[in-house]
Design a protein around this nucleic acid. Structure first.
Lengths: 335, 335
DNA sequence: CTGAAAGCGCTTACAG
DNA sequence: CTGAAAGCGCTTACAG
């Protein structure tokens, strides 16, 4: 039976539509007998409230927007699982916006989000600029859309809540691990594009190197394997390297492949470490030492924080930093 | 100036709200001068039509549901990019439903989809059973929700349109490649869970083996690396193996790691091939020979097909099979 | 505890 | 080409 409406239910249950609405949304305001009768009819008719009418009348959508760059990045995809699980618990639907399209500006997408009348937004784009951050604040202030940054952050500001790990600390710790193995020429391999979280990793790397009075060297590479290979090959000709911290597992593995093609032994000659603890880390040989980022949890917690903001509950800490681990495998000397 | 409405626009442009609506949705029905005046006001006020009111009044949502199992699978994530890009072209929003949650049955999720009043649905769950397929047909028939299967299919039925590659043929071809290298003991490593597309790959494998009068052997493994390792190790003790076709790249790489730990040379002793051409294939050493599945295109085309069904356009072929390639790398003998 | 009624912000025949 | 008005299916003060 295609689409029973609230009128059909009201008619069949011999009550007004107001009562049907209450039986669903404020059951305690309806006499138990009536409520049960209504609920039974709803069941029989397979009635589901029309989401549009509901959204229009109540001015709430029970929908959140999730804004992501390029979905095919492993971290983004796994975060979605965490987000979706918690969203389901709190009965929110997810409107997905992907920014990978060249032709569409982020600002246009954000305007769409406003038009969609979502109750809140999770922002997963970690290439956030000042301009974008300002625009987010505008959205929040003018359109009253609660926003949480997921696995990204804007330095020196807690205006907009964020959930991630302490990437600076993680970068410091993983670098220090190589220092303690006696490595002197430790490089960080970061990305050409300026991601906020990679910036933090670099800060941590720099701190560890300075502390050890070693000269820091940051190499920036594109994400593309073929380009990296060129890049790395050249590096070997011109530099002494005995340690590498890569901002992503896949970059670490890509580097290892080039190193080994150059007859460098890992971990004997060079210690290598990555970030994330993806499947690449396990499938690589040698298996990769890396920072384990609780990426599912970051998604889940940020969705949870968003529900709090949407319900105007107290949010204790605008900036949530989850714990991380360092997993020692076979690309480093010390276990 | 939160939320200008159509009335605000009408007032400022000195026309009725009907004209504003037309200027947006049927511009040709409005005199050019009027139209431009209205459009200018819309721009000035930053007006965006309220999606709920629009959906309620027009009974169209310009929203499609995308139903996926576990987002963290590389193929699913990459398909989302294709889906999102085409959805944007046709101005559809994406409501995302992830099935990875144990507590929620697929049927409940599908009911949510109905309530959400979407214009159509993309179904990416390739563990589709008869019961689920029947339920999908019910959704389509009773609630008039157009559905397209993305990278999955239901055997011997083209009731519901589907977009994928010819996995049977691909399975046949990749197996035949190993046969032509002179391999005799070729195993297929498939999954314990019965995915429709893996079933097709198995069929193709069986056909190639029969054609060559070789004895087929299908081994089923879980996706988890640690379990696979055990599994593969045992296999080496009891079987002669000189060729392996894995249903996923990551499984192929996982198998290679075990093989090499057992002092087997690849490709000298064993030829190995995978499916998908993910980053794993490039990052593995030796680099992995595999079937290249145009996964982005599968997403994009299925979204395109869905727009056709939603607009009641003619769909020539209910079952679309995109072309695939076989990429020869260093885990097989012949280039 | 329940109902009548206004209103959410649009679209779309129907007139003119 | 444009406007007045009904209606989409709900929610929510307001009365009672």
């Amino acid at each position: 039976m295609s689409k029973a409406t609230i009128y059909d239910v009201a008619g069949a249950a011999r009550v007004s539509l107001a009562t049907v609405s209450r039986a669903i949304n404020n059951p305690e305001k309806v006499k138990p007998e009536t409520r049960e009768r209504v609920l039974r009819v709803i069941e029989e008719l397979g009635y589901k409230p029309n989401a549009f009418a509901k959204g229009l009348a109540s001015r709430k959508s029970t929908t959140v927007a999730v804004l992501v760059p390029d979905m095919s990045r492993a971290s983004i995809a796994e975060m979605m699982n965490g987000i979706a699980d918690i969203a389901r618990v709190y009965k929110y639907s997810i409107l997905l916006y992907i920014l990978d399209n060249e032709e569409t500006s982020e600002e246009d997408v954000l305007k769409e989000v406003v038009a969609a009348q979502v109750d809140g937004m999770l922002y997963l784009n970690d290439e956030i600029t000042k301009k974008q951050y300002d625009f987010l604040m505008t959205m929040r202030d003018e359109y009253k859309i609660p926003i949480v940054l997921t696995n990204t952050l804007y330095p020196d500001s807690d205006e907009i809540p964020s959930v991630s790990i302490d990437y600076e600390k993680a970068g410091y710790e993983i670098t220090k691990k190589l220092v303690e193995e006696g490595r002197k020429n430790i490089f960080m391999v970061s990305t050409v594009r300026r991601y906020m979280v990679n910036d933090q990793k670099e800060q941590g790397y720099l701190r560890a190197m300075q502390e050890a009075s070693l000269e820091p060297r940051i190499m920036r590479t594109s994400g593309r394997i073929s380009i990296n290979t060129e890049h790395f090959n050249e590096y070997f000709k011109n530099h002494k390297v005995d340690g590498v911290v890569a901002v992503r597992d896949s970059i670490a593995v890509s580097f290892m492949n080039v190193a080994r093609a150059n007859h460098v032994k890992i971990p004997e000659d060079i210690s290598v470490a990555g970030f994330q603890n993806t499947k690449y880390a396990m499938l690589a040989r040698p298996t990769l030492t890396c920072v384990d980022v609780p990426i599912y949890d970051i998604g889940a917690v940020s969705m949870r924080v968003l529900t709090k903001v949407m319900n105007q509950e107290e949010v204790e800490e605008p900036t949530v930093m989850l714990d991380h681990d360092i997993i020692s495998r076979n690309t480093t000397l010390n276990k």
